[in-house]
Design a protein around this nucleic acid. Structure first.
Lengths: 337, 337
DNA sequence: TTGAAAGCGTTACCAG
DNA sequence: CTGGTAACGCTTTCAA
């Protein structure tokens, strides 16, 4: 593999000069630069990443901590992050927590300590992790998606969950539903809490009573949706519509409805949240709330990179608006507003 | 951040000795070692990854090239790879081709040339890429999943596609189907070819005629399945069952069936392939062929690591058996064999 | 069994 | 505008 030295030799200049050219430092003769680039091309030279990282004390790669890369929820977030990073020739490394939280933390900690990453994006962290997250913030620049730390100097990217839930409930209300159930996410996540709060607030707004029998405490997983519908619909006073706090649970609910002979949306309307790629793929296609996940991912990296490049820059705090995507799982809107 | 020097100072030994201890070299006094480990713990020392990579000329990270990390198909493969790697304190970096093949290749090439990875696992490559793959093999140890290079000294991990298709078709035949359609994958992939071949061979085995009108040339995507069913079922001589060459297309077909008022499996049976996590989540739950994807992922890394550790070791060539997972989308087997 | 010292390939400072 | 040189943090030979 060619080194910077070989390039220098071929171009007839010193390593220093090659380095300057490679890094677009201003103070170099255009003629010299051309020579260097030619040599680079001729040798198919690519700077050694480790050497560069060692010398610069940064790796040009950032870490992303999430539950599971394969979860459809992360798809667009990941794309958003990768798109920005690729444009800057930076890499990304994923930390999947799966369900081994302890193991996970050890791995991330090792990554931080061995300076494998310049920064870390945490998406959708557990509230019980606050302490360790605060500790990590001391060690490395971080950015959060789906989690707000208002009083901390750290970039936090969210979407407006309450607005989203409001749109969902409003939609159901317009369709004349009055008994609207809710399948919550794991309430240890900020997102889950906000959506549940939003649900209660929206009911109040529309002068609908809050009935504890109409809420099932789920987990953001398919199983939660399945069990949720099963439980909610096996009571005497069934809901006529269910707001599932994410698509995966909405899909679980859909399946349960099918299994128990309920026709969606005739017998029961189901509305999801997130607009993952699965939403239009199930039957009936899921009406859901779309978060701009791609943009949220991009915003998070950008915030993080700003902080990396200018330590004094203000952290980015952003709350994105969301939109209702009407498909089939709630029936059609009879009349629009 | 503490360096190896700090550890040495605290333990009262030289850097060299610390290094030896850290790397479990044999020739070191147990007493000294204990001192060093204590210092390591006290300082919460982790070796700098870049420095280590530079000195050792290897990064302890391997690359995985696939179409898209979020595709459900890769879920278990990824887990299999990560599990092995994590146990060896190695990292993984993903190269997602999305659909920008050219861009993709540039990125991977840069990664190779800048020695960011010690080896590369390619999953499900396009036959048109052979040339570039061969070129890459000169530069870096590689392993392939879902692709066979029989005459090359390189580890190749596959599953028995023909057997899988045979099981699928056999199942349909046992359910008395005689007009069995096929929605193929993108025939530029070996997997797609083998499954299509398998389909034809199985028909022959069961003495069923091959009818070109019963095959739709798909793409492994949801849309392919949707359009496939639509086309196949809009002919005069409709199939009574459809073999979709992966789950995603089976799900697309399911949706089309629903949209066109066909009841699955009563009006049309649909069978998938892969047993992704989506298969049990759709309605009706998908009968499909399960590949041991986790094991395939693990096997691929292991083969690769063997080659990295002992250059002379024989490459691993492995073809895993598959199994039929019977759920609901084909109805129940009336009588088993 | 240990330490000194020479790299590994870059960057960045300092002279010139 | 350019070259020499000292880091960056670790591994690995070579002597002792």
């Amino acid at each position: 593999m060619a080194t910077i030295f070989d390039v220098g030799k071929l171009a007839g200049v010193s390593r220093s000069t090659v380095s300057r050219v490679l890094n677009n430092k201003s103070d170099v003769d255009p003629e010299t630069a051309k020579l260097v680039w030619e040599a680079v091309r001729k040798l198919n030279y690519h700077p050694n990443a480790s050497a560069r990282a060692l010398a610069r004390q940064k790796t040009d790669t950032i870490g992303v901590m999430l539950a599971h890369v394969s979860d459809p929820y992360y798809e667009k977030i990941i794309k958003g992050i990768e798109t920005i990073l690729a444009a800057r020739n930076m890499s990304v490394i994923f930390f999947n927590s799966y369900d081994h939280l302890a193991e996970h933390k050890k791995i991330i900690n090792a990554a931080l300590k061995s300076s494998q990453i310049d920064g870390l994006i945490v998406v959708g962290s557990h509230s019980g992790d606050s302490e360790i997250l605060l500790e990590m913030m001391q060690q490395i620049p971080m950015a959060f998606i789906e989690r707000e730390f208002n009083d901390l100097q750290v970039t936090c990217i969210c979407s407006d969950n309450k607005q989203g839930v409001f749109l969902a409930i409003q939609h159901l209300v317009e369709l004349k539903h009055v008994r609207i159930g809710c399948i919550t996410g794991d309430l240890q996540y900020q997102t889950a809490i906000e959506r549940f709060e939003g649900y209660k607030e929206a009911l109040k707004h529309f002068k609908l009573p809050f009935d504890p029998d109409l809420v099932y405490y789920g987990n953001f997983q398919h199983s939660g949706g399945y069990n949720g519908l099963k439980k909610l619909c096996s009571q005497r006073k069934k809901p006529t519509a269910i707001f599932a706090c994410n698509d995966m649970m909405a899909i679980g609910a859909l399946q349960a409805a099918n299994d128990f002979g309920l026709v969606v949306p005739k017998d029961i309307a189901i509305i999801g949240y997130d607009d993952t790629y699965l939403a239009p793929m199930v039957y009936p296609q899921l009406t859901t709330v779309r978060q701009p996940l791609f943009e949220m991912g991009s915003a998070a990296v950008q915030g993080l990179l700003n902080q990396l490049n200018a330590k004094d820059s203000q952290p980015l705090k952003k709350k994105f608006p969301v939109e209702l995507i009407i498909r089939r799982s709630c029936g059609f809107r009879s009349l629009s507003l």
